[in-house]
């Protein structure tokens, strides 16, 4: 008992001192993505396939609670923008450790846009993802124009407005 408290305080101090440096993508940076499709590991999909389109890159995982809202709502937004003739596409990068969990999620919340699987977590590291979900809007040149972490329903309007500005 008399040892427990000082040891606990020591652990507290040790943990506070520890901190991790983090890479972060900046506005204007360009990091092309090439990853296998979640549903077909032999088929590669690249962000370069969507040049001449505003590309919404969405890092997500099946266990991420806001993703239950963001994926269906992004799917609707994509439909709407397509109907309005906007060159807009979404590239979802799944980061589950088990791809089957992602597939099960998509069976429940299906989306029409391409979903790729990043088993090694290469791209979130490159982009400096700090929370789930995090999204990046790439312009027609593939440069990052917008970074957004987290998701709430009101974000859809903001994204829509931005896409309209980028594709007048």
């Amino acid at each position: 008992m008399h040892h427990t408290i000082p040891v606990c305080i020591l652990i507290l101090i040790v943990f506070i001192v520890l901190s991790a440096p983090a890479n972060s993508a900046k506005i204007g940076d360009s990091y092309p993505i090439t990853l296998p499709s979640l549903f077909d590991s032999k088929k590669n999909i690249s962000s370069n396939d969507f040049k001449e389109k505003v590309l919404y890159v969405d890092f997500w995982a099946s266990w991420c609670i806001p993703c239950r809202k963001s994926l269906p709502q992004l799917n609707e937004l994509r439909e709407r923008l397509k109907r309005n003739g906007k060159d807009f596409e979404i590239l979802a990068i799944n980061l589950d450790s088990d791809p089957n969990e992602a597939i099960a999620f998509l069976n429940k919340y299906p989306v029409d846009y391409p979903v790729v699987y990043d088993a090694e977590g290469k791209y979130p590291k490159l982009y400096g993802v700090k929370g789930m979900p995090t999204s990046y809007i790439l312009d027609l040149q593939g440069k990052i124009r917008y970074v957004h972490s987290g998701f709430r329903s009101s974000d859809i309007k903001k994204i829509e407005a931005l896409v309209h500005e980028m594709l007048p």
Partner: peptide, 13 residues
């Protein structure tokens, strides 16, 4: 959008 991407502005808890 640079302003949006500042920490604490466009991030949801």
């Amino acid at each position: 959008t640079s302003a949006f991407s500042l920490p604490g502005i466009s991030a949801k808890a």
